[in-house]
Amino acid sequence: MKSMAYPQDYSKISKVEKPVIGYARFGRVLKFNRYLFLLQLTLLLFVFEFLVIFLLEDYFKVLSSITKRVLEDSYTKSYKFLKLTLEYSVSQGRLPTLQESFIYLILSLLSLLLLTRKSNPLPKYVSAWLMYIAFVYFVSSFYFLLFLEKFPYTERDFAILYLLQQTGVFIFIPLVLGLSLSVFTFSPLNLLFNAFTILLTLIYSSVFGGIRYIFFVYVLKEFSYIHMPAMFFIFGPLLDFIYIVSFYSLCLYMTLRLLQKRQEAFYQWGF
């Protein structure tokens, strides 16, 4: 009778091991905790939506006072939205002169012509964006050249529209991030990561949205309403989605880096 055990091994474990089979990516699914999923959905959506609505009036009040400090000639008004009173400060804007409109028309037209030329050396994705910007400015300048007096908005309309747009973005952030991030239910830490991401996104949005507002009001005052369409159609909610997706990817990265210590903790077999 011979002993063949590894001499240094004194382990008392009698079980061999649990089957460890790598979950190939074609058939794996994510570990799913139904309760954590529902908890995240509920908490992330309701808590943050509540927070947004609760802080909305204060946010716009602060923004209004900062606007007033930066743009000293601005005046303060308020707007009733549902049961909320949203305060804003805005400087008086101005209509473009015929000369300005004409210059923008020529510039945008020239840009469009140059960008659509085959010899355009810019990468197509950059050209595509520039074409879009040029197109918006072309429409805008064309309008102001022909129907200057009929422009339906004042700086106050702009401010109200911006307020509503920003409110829309605030409401949308917990919704879109809550729905997309709740999918990850690997650990209770996910709830923390996801809540942190939404919070960070909301903070970023309030800072970015605020600065953007003051910047826009300044542009309308100094450089006329000809830029107003661009403020909504180019630099509007489209830009908000950059940081929303950016924070989403950051949260994904945190999840992948911190929680994926072992494959088994992350995936399960999907069949």
């Binding site: 002993s3 382990s11 008392k12």
Partner: peptide
């Protein structure tokens, strides 16, 4: 490596 000898250990780790 064993030939035809019997194995003593209950838990074998190699």
């Amino acid at each position: 490596v064993l030939n035809s000898e019997d194995l003593l250990e209950t838990n074998v780790h190699t």
